[in-house]
Design a protein around this nucleic acid. Structure first.
Lengths: 357, 357
DNA sequence: CTGAAAGCGCTTACAG
DNA sequence: CTGAAAGCGCTTACAG
């Protein structure tokens, strides 16, 4: 209709001030519930704010305050179960603490990771949570973050040489426990399918395997240890090869569930029973591990907790110790993984054990 | 050391101006690459900006410009494959168009959905993309968005009565095609496991099933149609019951892959061969459908494309037709789903078909 | 308890 | 091609 403005502007603090007949600064204080304003006035202001459909303008307030109540997270990929769950955990912590969350993906590219850092700095986030891309080998961009007085927490894929708060999985211990579990089921010839060996995370998982083998006094032929087997197809090929040897493995520990799946298929194809003849345990506790026949044992990384705890480092520790000496040293937290025992690694009669007696 | 400032402030446009010896406004224009500044000066300014480690302050610029180059998305849950993929698609579109993305979850709660809307308005987003929570039955909060001159696009779970741009799946057609596929494989007694019937999405999928059955001239006993079977366990129970009847189904179309999995287990338990005796097709193309034995046929909703297209409605359509009459009417787009034929529904010899001849 | 004034860091007409 | 001035919508010492 003719009486209406074509593009009605958002109501501002000044509109409320004019309507109520007080100063804009008082409106601001009333809306922020400062003790220096009378209750009557607050009620009046709030009522008028509602009436005018006023919305607080975060941009303006953040600019003035110099803080944004926003944190940024950078992950390689959001539509991977592990990271999606981590983000869900972070989001929960942000919600509890009334903060906004901006999510960036590096797509495993160092270039994109640097861009994401740039974006988050420009956005004035108070804190960056980051899990490094596979390509990342330097930390200048992390330095950039802290240089701008932005808090930094690394999680899962971290650079230990850079002094920031850090939260990681207990990769070595988790792998150790997984292999111990296989041993407890009577498996003795345990093969290992690892990841790219230059990534610390995979190095740790391999170490856990080696330690468990060592402390059980088992000996493993060198060809039972294969790096860079993360996907299903290569695992199937590699496992088939091993299973056809005269001295063949009786169990596989893989650092990925997809590789575990490949092993399962290889065993099927070679006519081996799982878990009777061959035991299998993977890593990550992907949703599909509950759905195969037999179901796949795996290591659960507690990703949701991990996300929550990462954010809590900022909310519960950093925010509270802004100026203490405490804030000086960097936190190193470890999230304990859990071995999820499913059908692929649990023997009813511990056949292997008996055979050994 | 003593010479350093304890908390170095971020460099501003004014710092650059002082260092170069020109006006702040000229610095702004140079950094924004406006044609009204000489190339020499731009080079000078850029160099100094790098030297001072200057970062553009989005908060300040957004406040001044009145636009934020940020879009907000509200989904029920981000760590569900369907939505994680959608968000990945949206993120891609945002990246291409140099926009930021703020992600909110409703957790299927109307209350939380309203809070998310509030947050996004306060954050000054230029556009909101939303998939409604299961609880959402009113649209006042959507009106709130458009009232604040913020663009709105609904996707997947939408309210058709509210006049906004909309992007949906072709639920009815997809179901129709899925059932047609079963029929083409010679299945004739096709059961249906649906969702809660009050949600339009599930109503449409059921309609597609009914239409396909009807147009093939098949008749189906009423007890072959069961609503509210979305999870594995109830599907296993319901399917077992049906398979034990003397007049039992020879195929199942379920609106969820988890239900399809339950049917698969039921068939196994009843000693029925899949796909020989029983055909199965699910919905959503969850990752695990590729991993079961036999692998599960499913309907792929092209979630990533869906996310991308949703964002494109804003970037390619809304942004370009700001003031046209075109922008007046709301777009309704449909993303075509694809039937993914896997082992659980593809018969080698079309046994059922032959029997029918 | 309330208000006037300054300022957060930019951008944008407008003038030269 | 460059600059001075105003202003985006808030918050925060400071004064009364």
């Amino acid at each position: 209709m003719p009486g209406e403005k074509e593009k009605k502007k958002r109501a501002t603090i000044r509109d409320i001030a004019d309507a109520v007949g007080i100063a804009p600064s008082s409106v601001s204080k009333a809306l922020n519930d400062l003790p220096t304003i009378s209750e009557n006035m607050k009620t009046l202001v709030r009522a008028k704010a509602r009436e005018l459909n006023y919305k607080h303008n975060s941009n303006a307030a953040n600019l003035r305050r110099g803080r944004s109540r926003t944190i940024g997270v950078i992950v390689p990929k959001i539509n991977v179960a592990f990271f999606a769950d981590i983000i869900a955990g972070i989001e929960q912590a942000c919600f509890e603490n009334d903060h906004r969350l901006i999510i960036c993906q590096s797509h495993e590219s160092f270039e994109r990771e640097m861009q994401a850092v740039e974006t988050l700095i420009q956005q004035n986030v108070d804190c960056v949570l980051i899990s490094l891309s596979q390509e990342t080998k330097t930390t200048d961009h992390l330095k950039e973050i802290t240089n701008h007085n932005i808090q930094l927490v690394q999680f899962d894929r971290v650079d230990h040489t850079f002094g920031s708060h850090i939260l990681v999985n207990d990769n070595r211990e988790a792998s150790f426990k997984a292999v111990q579990h296989l041993i407890s089921q009577g498996y003795k010839k345990i093969a290992f399918f690892g990841g790219p060996d230059y990534l610390p995370l995979y190095k740790e998982r391999k170490q856990g395997y080696l330690d468990a083998i060592g402390s059980a006094g088992l000996t493993i032929p060198y060809n039972f240890i294969v790096d860079n087997i993360l996907k299903r197809a290569p695992a199937e090929v590699a496992a088939t090869e091993l299973l056809r040897l005269k001295f063949a493995p009786d169990a596989f520990f893989t650092v990925s569930d997809y590789a575990a799946l490949g092993v399962l298929k290889a065993a099927e194809r070679c006519g081996k029973k799982v878990p009777g003849d061959i035991g299998i345990i993977g890593f990550s506790n992907e949703a599909f591990t509950e759905v195969t026949s037999p179901t796949l044992s795996s290591v659960s990384q507690q990703s949701r907790e991990m996300g929550r705890e990462t954010a809590y480092i900022y909310f519960n520790y950093v925010l509270n110790h802004h100026d203490d000496d405490k804030a000086a040293h960097s936190l190193k937290l470890v999230i304990e993984s859990a071995v999820i025992e499913r059908e692929s690694s649990v023997r009813k009669n511990k056949k292997g054990n008996k055979a050994g007696l």
